[in-house]
Nucleic acid binder design. Structure first.
Length: 437
RNA sequence: GUGAUAGUAGCUCAGUCGGCUAGAGCACUAGGUUGUGGUCCUAGGGGUCGCGGGUUCGAAUCCCGUCUAUCACCCCA
């Protein structure tokens, strides 16, 4: 092959498109049924939108170009800066809270791996303008609601919930210097991925005081929120953070998804801008990858030139979602095209009538097709089956003599005659199943 | 961007101590079948063995480079 798709990009053949659409449909339906509305923005943005948020290093990790006017542009690596820009532009007039979702195509100039490509789709859910644990809880609920949509059980996926604020205040209470927190988050985020010795070494570099390290390791290993609460006498700010996490967990219980959710002090997220609740969903199967992640980012809109306005949200990629569904055999079947009716002539002399009937059916919203070649009846039926069709409509001698057509249910093999006029007047009620959606 | 492993038909793979026109299953196309499909039988198309170079009388097979994929780093927005 002389020409290939570029590295880390995918071709979507019709069967792949079916899977992708099934995931998009789920994302869209779940978003809508939770009260979110869809938005979108440009794929290309000014490069500084991303450097303002993430610093200059980000440039190495995204595709960027200079246009003919000398402007530095970038293919969007994520949606949040665009969201912030759009919200900031109309922040005075948008009714709050803003509940928006988006399914953007995004680009990252990284080395591709499983679950991680250079071109991918992301599902983004954000609530802007509501500083209340209820918003955090609802955001998490939406992610879990998607798992339920696909039939994923609490035995297959888990939503781990934590709070940056809680971790921060715990560490301050335990004697950690405030300036050490950001580098600590980065190390803590990788705790499960690195060997124990490497973790200890990295930790010792940030926290030279061994007694502080020991206290931290002890307290961060506490399995439940109740354990944390009773571990020692915490400062008021720490106590407030505990109460806030408890509220989120209580709301999720009340919403009926408590079984999916668990408190986990190990989830801190690598990103610098998270300010409160953070969460990550994981497969409980072999897939050792986070399938969606997010949290509260109350500073970001201000950093990007807007007012101080609270926000919480998450993102999840179609690549990881597909891997997750595949792992549990929940990918929708690749059934081929869906047709309602395949119209067949038993004799080439009926072909012109066939075309008229196909035209009339299509006008009524019936997904109808036919064979271009005048094949024997058996071959046309075979073509109907291969097209994934519910019904065949046969035109034959009976059509010529009595103006009736024969409708054959391709699933059961049963067939019956129907006057042509009746079929065309009420095609949906005369066809075995399917019909316009 | 760094390192490791792999690449044979659309898919899953056989074939390598270097040797004749490179194979199978599935899929695809056609026929068996002039008014009844899914099964079955037969035949066919499809490969510069990822690409380029080297060694050799001779390379799918050995060597180098490169591309792509996978894995570990980096990063994970």
């Amino acid at each position: 092959m002389k020409f290939k798709a570029i590295k880390g990009a995918r071709d979507f053949y019709p069967p792949d498109m079916e899977v992708r659409n099934a995931i998009f449909d789920a994302w869209r339906e779940v978003s809508l049924r939770n009260g979110f509305v869809e938005y979108d923005g440009p794929t290309l943005e000014y490069l500084d939108l991303y450097t303002a948020k993430s610093g200059d290093e980000i440039v190495q990790q995204l595709f960027h170009l200079t246009d003919r006017g000398g402007r530095e542009l970038a293919l969007r690596p994520e949606m949040t800066p665009t969201l912030a820009r759009m919200v900031n532009a109309q922040v005075a007039t948008l009714p709050k809270p803003i509940k928006w979702f988006c399914i953007p195509r995004c680009y990252r100039a990284e080395r591709p791996q499983r679950g991680r490509l250079r071109e991918f789709f992301q599902w983004n859910i954000d609530i802007v303008g509501l500083d209340d644990p209820l918003a955090d809880a609802e955001t998490i609920f939406v992610a879990v609601d998607l798992f339920r949509w696909f039939g994923l059980s609490p035995r297959q996926v888990v939503m781990k919930i934590n709070s940056r604020e809680l971790v921060a205040h715990m560490l301050l209470d335990l004697g950690v210097d405030a300036t050490r927190l950001p580098p600590l988050y980065a190390v803590l985020d990788k705790r499960d991925k690195m060997p124990r010795a490497a973790f200890d070494a990295a930790l010792a570099e940030i926290l030279p005081d061994e007694s502080v390290r020991r206290a931290m390791n002890e307290h961060l290993a506490l399995p439940t929120l109740a354990d944390v609460r009773s571990a020692r006498t915490w400062a008021p700010a720490t106590h407030d953070a505990i109460v806030e996490v408890q509220k989120v967990l209580d709301w999720l219980d009340r919403w009926g998804v408590g079984e999916y959710c668990t408190f986990d002090l190990g989830v801190v997220r690598g990103l610098a801008y998270y300010t409160g609740i953070v969460f990550e969903a994981y497969s409980k199967g072999g897939l050792k990858r986070s399938v969606c992640g997010g949290g509260r980012y109350d500073e970001l809109l201000r950093v990007l030139g807007g007012p101080e306005i609270p926000a919480v949200g998450f993102a999840s990629s179609d690549v990881v979602m597909q891997d997750l569904l595949d792992e549990f055999n929940l990918l929708p079947g690749r059934g081929g095209q869906r047709l309602d009716a395949y119209v067949i002539d038993a004799d080439p002399s009926l072909f012109e009538q066939l075309i008229s009937i196909v035209g009339a059916l299509r006008e009524k919203g019936v997904r109808a097709d036919f064979s271009y070649r005048r094949l024997p009846l058996g071959k046309q039926l075979k073509a109907a089956s291969n097209a994934g069709c519910a019904a065949a409509i046969l035109l034959g001698q009976e059509t010529r003599d009595r103006d009736v057509v024969t409708i054959k249910d391709l699933a059961t093999g049963q067939q019956r005659e129907v006057p042509r006029e009746r079929l065309l007047a009420e095609p949906v009620s005369n066809l075995p199943r399917g019909g316009p959606a």
